[in-house]
Design a protein around this nucleic acid. Structure first.
Length: 826
RNA sequence: GGGCAAGUGGUGGAAUGGCAUACACGUUGGACUUAAAAUCCAAUGGCCGUAAGGCCGUGUGGGUUCGACUCCCACCUUGCCCACCA
């Protein structure tokens, strides 16, 4: 049989059926083996898989099969992140139902995933849009309500007046609705939040335990949580009872505070401006800022606008009266919504003060350039220096003053050292149809009532017409909205918002442990056995939100007593994007390559090998159609090698004394390759693992083979078998087929043990020493491995070529690295 | 503005203090063939040289070292993430 497009298709289908029928990948608890939970981020079922999926899942599959071969009890599940807006858009576009569309997509995707030969335990397949799944979303939500972690709050959100729906920040494109291009406004809505901030300290602290996460993901999470130490300072309003609390991380600049700024939404604003001569003007300004979309307001390059309130506040350290302003560059949802402004040492304050003619006072002088003046300043001086104009703190280093002024103010009752966090509570309400209904009922008498556990799930009504207009589709469905209060049986209204889909994906890895369990959210014993996930693999785009939310859920489950660990994912690998012609492969760019077309021509094995060989998994991968040819060629060579050179029934247990030099060299290379492939897979270096197998293949080709020699044939058989097993995590279909040729008729190659490197066989009789003169390569010597430094020195110095470079100059130093090099310094 | 990553032949990449360019793609030449495909063999960083060989060479400039793609400092470029965060 030759290796061609036709045979490969047949062969791959045959083995996919075999794995299915034999239930090879069905995972069950097994006390006799160590467990290994290998997980990839489940896909959104858009129908076809793309190269990004292929890359992600091939990496995971290689890992999973490698661990199986090493004797681990591997759990490797797959499912679908099936709720979400694209299904609603598709429903509108194709005039169909989101459920129908989604389930059809999942059916198509399952076929494509199977065609790749991934080692999934399909018994555990789940879809978040199944009511058997989302019912537990609702259960988790009610548990969070019980503990005060799910609560309702009114806040300002992006709102499209045309579509009558809220928009996520990503859906606002240049202040317009991405769908209908209408100008986006802000609207106050009463919505559900999860109190993730309750866990901010733990979420930050436990990052330290994640030794096997990429450091940049840790850094991104740290920044996102954003713990900052500073001082809350109390500025009394002049001629009034109120106190403005400002937050600053730079208490060392307090003597330079020349005005105070409040966010337009600050609760004290209303009282302060009442009766002011400019009250109408000020209110108009506040209203204008209130309408601005968040993205515009938050973009740093916009000109800072503001207005004076007519009132003054007292700087607590020097009793100076400073004007109180309102400005759009101060945000209500960070710190206290109020700042002290120090134009000389903060660039934003500098720009604002210059624009509006506000006072500046230098309080830090640069050590090197100590003649800064307010007049000459063209930008704020934000570096370290010595304090001036700062009372008893004059001359103190500014960095030291951050602490000492903070402490002093606390003693004086003028402030308090505090910590502020960037992390906000998580808004989960969505005015959409295709998501988990929030399980809450509003009763006039009883208030907000969670749906009791025995009445879950609150099912999504079927056959809803999605138009994308007129607000939430569920709100227009009276059978859904009108219910009886579970407590008092009076007429009541059901919540019509659904949950953000990030909720669904925050705990699916736990559900896989007992995916069919209809009694509880997950089986505690199964979770205790399989969790935490040993290897998690997915895109860097989920570095913050999904991973943070999952960590939050895990900590919540621990508090509920359902799990006994703090972190869900032990090792994390974030794979790079797949590019075509230097750009990210995407539908909108029209530069996609369909994996199916590659499989049809070359088979899944070549595609798998190619995508792992082309680049290290964390790097971007530049897709090149020609590269598949290289993988194909290599697999053909392996195929032909087994068919032409392997002879069944020959004893391959050749001992060292039976080998000549060529045999020993090949045997040594076989062991080098075992070691290299084993270590490289563990370190995610699939590309070099593959190249080392190619090197071994090349050596086999060059191996001098004597026809009829049982010893040579034994050596050859052994190296061929090793190659086939080492390849099995990468190209499982072909490896299974070839494995059969070795007389393993009924058993999968997965049951065969991973080869072990014989360290003894790695030893070499002779080694190559490179000789340098002043660090430059000048000669090479083949010497006995046991050679001494003195012997090398003598040998090297005697060499004519070396002598020509030494040129009679005196030897200053001789550096010798055993087995590697000798360097002559003259 | 802040944080992080990366920069090596025609291309993807290898080497993480010790032979720069492993492995592969591509290209060129050769074998086989009526021919093509496939396959196999050989060559393949630049410059100088008939050759032996020499010199240069890992974004730029400096430094450390016997020795630097690798470590340190500064800069340039690209990518990603965050960003009026006080």
């Amino acid at each position: 049989m030759t290796y061609n497009t036709h045979t490969i298709k047949e062969l791959e289908e045959k083995w996919q059926k075999f794995w299915d029928a034999q239930k090879i990948f069905k995972a069950d608890q097994d006390a006799s083996k160590p467990k290994y939970y290998c997980l990839e981020m489940f896909p959104y079922p858009s129908g076809k898989i793309h190269m990004g999926h292929v890359r992600n899942y091939t990496i995971a599959d290689c890992m999973a099969r490698f661990k199986m071969a090493q004797g681990f009890n591997v759990l490797h599940p797959m499912g679908y992140d099936a709720f979400g807006q694209p299904a609603e858009n598709a429903a509108i576009k194709h005039n169909t139902d989101p459920a129908k569309w989604t389930y059809a997509c999942m059916d198509q995707m399952r076929v494509e995933l199977k065609r790749m030969g991934f080692s999934y335990d399909w018994n555990r397949e789940l879809a978040t849009c199944d009511k058997e799944y989302y019912r537990w979303n609702q259960w988790i939500f009610t548990k969070m309500m019980e503990r005060g972690l799910a609560y309702k709050k009114t806040s300002s959100v992006n709102w499209c007046p045309q579509c009558e729906t809220t928009l996520a920040n990503e859906e606002v494109i240049q202040d317009q609705c991405w769908r209908c291009k209408t100008e986006v406004t802000q609207k106050d809505l009463n919505q559900w939040y999860l109190k993730i901030t309750e866990y901010n300290e733990k979420l930050l602290e436990d990052l330290k335990t994640l030794e096997h996460w990429p450091s940049r993901v840790i850094a991104m999470q740290e920044n996102w949580i954003g713990k900052s130490y500073g001082v809350d300072m109390y500025f009394n309003v002049k001629d009034a009872e109120e106190t403005i609390t400002v937050f600053t991380t730079r208490p060392d600049t307090i003597f330079g505070a020349t005005y105070v700024v409040l966010a337009p939404e600050h609760p004290l604003v209303d009282g302060l401006i009442q009766g002011s001569a400019d009250e109408d003007k000020i209110r108009a300004f506040i209203e204008k800022v209130g309408k601005e979309s968040k993205s515009l307001r938050m973009s740093g390059d916009q000109k800072k606008e503001g207005t004076f309130t007519g009132r003054y506040a007292i700087n607590p350290v020097n009793n100076e009266a400073v004007p109180i302003w309102i400005a759009d560059y101060v945000l209500m949802d960070y710190g206290t919504g109020a700042i002290m402004a120090v134009p000389t040492h903060d660039q934003r304050d500098f720009l604002f003060a210059t624009e509006h003619g506000l006072a500046k006072r230098i309080v830090i002088q640069d050590a090197k350039n100590s003649d800064l003046t307010e007049k000459d300043m063209t930008c704020a001086f934000e570096e370290e220096g010595a304090l001036v104009n700062s009372g008893q703190f004059d001359g103190v280093n500014s960095r030291a003053a951050i602490k000492s002024i903070g402490e002093w103010m606390e003693q004086e009752g003028a402030g308090k050292m505090t910590v502020h966090w960037r992390l906000r509570d998580w808004l989960i309400s969505r005015q959409r149809y295709w998501g988990t209904p929030i399980p809450v009922i509003y009763c006039e008498a009883c208030g907000v009532v969670p749906v009791p556990e025995d009445q879950l799930p609150v099912e999504l009504p079927q056959d809803i017409k999605i138009t994308g207009e007129g607000g939430s589709p569920l709100a227009q469905c009276p059978e859904f909205v009108n219910v009886q209060c579970p407590k008092c049986q009076a007429d009541a209204r059901r919540e019509t918002d659904t949950m953000a889909t990030f909720f669904d994906s925050s705990w699916y890895y736990l559900r896989y442990c007992s995916a069919k369990n209809d009694k509880e959210v997950f089986d505690k014993k199964e979770a205790a056995y399989w969790m935490p996930v040993d290897q998690y693999i997915g895109g860097i785009e989920h570095a913050i939100l999904h991973l943070l939310y999952s960590r939050f859920f895990t900590k919540f489950f621990k508090d509920l007593g359902l799990v006994d660990f703090d972190e869900p994912f032990v090792r994390l690998l974030t794979q790079g994007m797949v590019l075509k012609d230097g750009e990210v492969m995407s539908k909108s760019r029209g530069n996609t390559v369909d994996p199916d077309s590659i499989i049809a021509r070359y088979g899944a094995d070549s595609l798998r090998l190619c995508i792992l060989f082309a680049a290290p998994p964390e790097d971007q991968l530049e897709w090149n159609d020609n590269a598949v040819d290289g993988s194909w060629k290599f697999l053909s060579r392996i195929w032909n090698l087994v068919h032409n050179r392997y002879v069944d029934g020959v004893d391959d247990n050749i001992t060292k004394d039976q080998m000549d030099q060529a045999d020993a060299d090949l045997e040594r290379e076989r062991n080098v390759t075992i070691k290299k492939v084993t270590e490289d897979i563990e370190k995610y270096k699939f590309n070099t693992a593959i190249s080392s197998m190619m090197i071994l293949m090349n050596s086999v080709d060059k191996y001098k083979f004597a026809e009829g020699s049982a010893i040579k044939q034994g050596i050859l058989n052994r190296v061929i078998k090793t190659l086939v097993i080492l390849l099995s995590p990468f190209t499982p279909h072909m490896s299974e087929e070839l494995w059969q040729k070795f007389g393993n008729k009924e058993k999968s190659i997965i049951a065969s043990p991973w080869p072990i490197c014989d360290e003894g066989a790695l030893k070499q009789e002779t080694v190559q020493i490179i000789a340098q003169v002043n660090g430059k390569l000048r000669a090479k010597f083949q010497v006995a491995a046991s050679i001494t430094e003195a012997e090398v020195k003598e040998l090297v110095l005697a060499d004519a070529k070396i002598q020509s470079f030494v040129d009679g100059k005196p030897l200053r130093r001789f550096i010798f690295i055993p087995g590697k090099l000798a360097n002559i310094v003259i």
